[in-house]
C-alpha cells in the first residue's frame, strides 16, 4: 500500500503530505523515483528532503530541521487554493463508489454512533488539489455505496458534479486499499478495480466492497514492492510503527 502510494507521486511535483502512511509514502518516493518532489505539510512546512528520522506527526522537530520554508497554514493552503499543488493524500474511515470520504460522523451527524476526529486539512486537499490520492483499509464496512457524511468531496454523485457545486478542479485519481488499486472512470467518475495486490484477488476485492464493484477488462496484479521501495520503507520505519499494522 505504501509502495503504491509512493508511485502516485511524480518526480518534480509539489505534494501535500498528510498524516500516517503518506508520511512514509513521501519518503519512499523521494528515495526511489521522485527525488525532486517537494513536500508540503499543512501546519506550514515545506521541505525538499525527507526528514532524517521517522515522523509520528508532521510537527515533530526532525520535520522542521532542514525544512526550506516554515510559515503559516493559510499560506500553504493558499498554494492549494491557487491550484499550485499537484496532489494530496488523505485517509479516512469510509469512502464511497464516487470517492467521497467520511472522517467525521458514522450515523446521523446530530446523534452519531461514532464521532470521528473530523476533516483536519483533508477537506481542503480534496476540494483544491489537482488530484487526490485516497488510502483506506479494504473492508466492506468502509467501502460503502454511500458514505454517511461527505467530509472530503470526491466526485459527489458522479459525472460533472464537482463543476456543478463550484469546485475549481481535482477529484480522486486513485483509491489505494489494503487489497488493491481502484481508479475512476473518466466519464461516470465511478471507482473500478484496476489491480489487486499480490496475495489478494479480484474476487476478494469485489466481495469486500460495499457496492457492485466494476472490474477493469485489463485488471492485473499490482506490481510487488521493489527492493528499493522495501529498503526505503524498512530503513525509515525499522520498527514498523506505521507499516506493520
Amino acid at each position: 500500500m505504501v509502495a503504491q502510494a509512493a508511485r502516485e507521486i511524480c518526480d518534480g511535483e509539489t505534494v501535500f503530505v498528510g498524516m500516517r502512511l503518506p508520511l512514509i509514502a513521501f519518503v519512499v518516493a523521494k528515495r526511489t523515483h521522485a527525488p525532486n518532489a517537494i513536500g508540503i505539510f499543512e501546519l506550514g512546512v515545506m521541505r525538499d528532503a525527507p526528514s532524517r528520522e521517522l515522523l509520528y506527526t508532521m510537527g515533530d522537530p526532525p520535520n522542521v530541521a532542514g525544512a526550506r520554508w516554515c510559515t503559516r497554514t493559510v499560506n500553504v493552503m493558499g498554494l492549494l487554493q491557487r491550484g499550485e499543488v499537484a496532489a494530496g493524500f488523505i485517509g479516512g474511515a469510509e469512502v464511497d463508489r464516487f470517492g467521497n470520504v467520511n472522517t467525521s460522523y458514522i450515523g446521523d451527524p446530530s446523534r452519531p454512533t461514532v464521532k470521528l476526529p473530523g476533516s483536519g486539512g483533508g477537506a481542503d486537499i480534496a476540494c483544491l488539489a489537482q488530484r487526490l490520492i485516497v488510502i483506506m483499509a479494504h473492508e466492506k464496512k468502509r467501502l460503502r455505496e454511500r458514505v454517511d457524511y461527505v467530509t472530503s468531496p470526491g466526485y459527489g454523485d458522479g459525472g460533472d458534479w464537482r463543476a456543478r457545486v463550484g469546485l475549481p478542479r481535482g477529484g480522486p485519481s486513485v483509491l489505494i486499499t489494503t487489497l488493491g488499486v481502484l481508479r475512476f472512470d473518466p466519464g461516470t467518475k465511478e471507482a473500478f478495480l484496476a489491480s489487486y495486490h499480490p496475495g489478494s484477488s479480484v474476487d476478494e476485492c469485489v466481495s469486500e466492497t460495499g457496492w457492485a464493484l466494476r472490474v477493469a477488462p485489463d485488471v492485473r496484479e499490482t506490481a510487488a514492492p521493489s527492493a528499493a521501495e522495501l529498503n526505503a520503507i524498512r530503513e525509515y520505519d525499522p520498527k514498523g510503527f506505521w507499516t506493520n499494522s
Partner: peptide, 13 residues
C-alpha cells in the same frame, strides 16, 4: 470568501 468546502457536508453541519 473561499473555494474550499464546496460540496463538503461541513457546509451543512
Amino acid at each position: 470568501p473561499t473555494k474550499t468546502l464546496l460540496g463538503s457536508d461541513i457546509c451543512h453541519t
